[in-house]
Design a protein around this nucleic acid. Sequence first.
DNA 1: TGTATATTATTTGTCGACAAGAATTTTATC
DNA 2: GATAAAATTCTTGTCGACAAATAATATACA
Lengths: 234, 234
Amino acid sequence: MTDIDTSPIPERKRGSGVKMVYDLLRDEILDLVLLPGSPIDEVQLAERFKMSRTPIREALVRLAGEGLIDTLPNRSTMVANIDFLNMHTFFDALVLMYRVTTKLAAQYHRPEDLKVIRAHQAEFAAAVQAQDALAMIATNAAFHSAIAEAGRNAYFTGLFNRLLDEGRRMLRLYYQSYDDRLPQRFVEEHDDIIAVIANRDVEEADRLAKLHAEQIVHQIQKLFAREDRLDVAL
Amino acid sequence: MTDIDTSPIPERKRGSGVKMVYDLLRDEILDLVLLPGSPIDEVQLAERFKMSRTPIREALVRLAGEGLIDTLPNRSTMVANIDFLNMHTFFDALVLMYRVTTKLAAQYHRPEDLKVIRAHQAEFAAAVQAQDALAMIATNAAFHSAIAEAGRNAYFTGLFNRLLDEGRRMLRLYYQSYDDRLPQRFVEEHDDIIAVIANRDVEEADRLAKLHAEQIVHQIQKLFAREDRLDVAL
DNA sequence: TGTATATTATTTGTCGACAAGAATTTTATC
DNA sequence: GATAAAATTCTTGTCGACAAATAATATACA
């Protein structure tokens, strides 16, 4: 017998479904393709990915575990809102994690870590050069995440990556309307940080990381202050 | 027609199933009723709780998200092992979280927080008095968790609670064979910490928390050292 | 016309069944 | 008797269907 239709659908492998949905939804949430507060429909997703609701639900449970979506029992589930009221707790945590991960990187990094870090820094510099705000956000996060990895503390990298994700979401929210650009200064600060890590200067790593983090926090706060004024005007 | 069997099973409410399984498995893992590395059978759990595998699986996905169980795709799932090799990363994170949460508690606590904290301290003191090692572990964790709550930073409390859970698991592992007792000294240190929090003395809170944390870490390390010697003897 | 109740529709949580992978056992071959 | 291949058992991942909970709509009544 002759097979006419050899299954035009990609024919996913068993178990790959959840990961695919998880990764894609995660990206769409962090890239603000799915805006905070927007509803998530299981059935719709099931149709879109051509699979049953079961793997979709598993992906959603995972995302809920990371705080990226909120689930009201027996009711709707939606993209997690950004908590502007407790923003300062976010900043506190971010600054501390910048400091501790950079310190640990200075202590525990291996030669190959520096290569990865420098590569991310090159991408960040390129993004700044090109004045591509969205790329800046992404590459900056990747740069600091790589530093944290070099510190080799899974507890810290876990929290830090979560904070970087949340920060990415917040920044995108504002860079969508304002095509402001992060200053060249950040590129230089990154270079300095790489240098002290390479020198294994833990004290100086802490100091620079603190300065850099506060610099970034300040930048974000300025952004929000401007937006606040706009909100009042509306 | 006469109904003979009027459903003797509690008749759970819709949606309560997953939470029940999640909570119970979580407790059993943290209390070492389920030992690290022991396999988890979905079908068995489904029979035990008299429900289908679907809600069981959801609970397992959540536990996996918190790192309490490990899942090999298409293969078995088991209680997460304790990572003795990277123990120092655990201690680093624990000490830092002790410090930062205590500091924030000194800054941001409200009067009612102190009541809760003092209540937990009373329970801890009672456990020490009764030389109930297991109770000490639990009440000590609750005490510090309450302090962290008073600091009102969800990012920190999230990581800290996770660390406390992991610590509870490690300690139980050893207090099962050794009925050693944490010294009375910890009770006094707790009292001192409560005092500086009440005084809103942030600097001193940091200092005491650091000392206390290092004290506890030292205690745990002593325990492990003793056990290590035993392992060699086997 | 506005409010309360009943009806319908939508969506979520749970179930039993089935199929794909992996582990285990059995059979075949040297 | 040891190794390789085949068959079987077992466990997991996925599916379609159904029922409970909620939301939306229609109806009744003042």
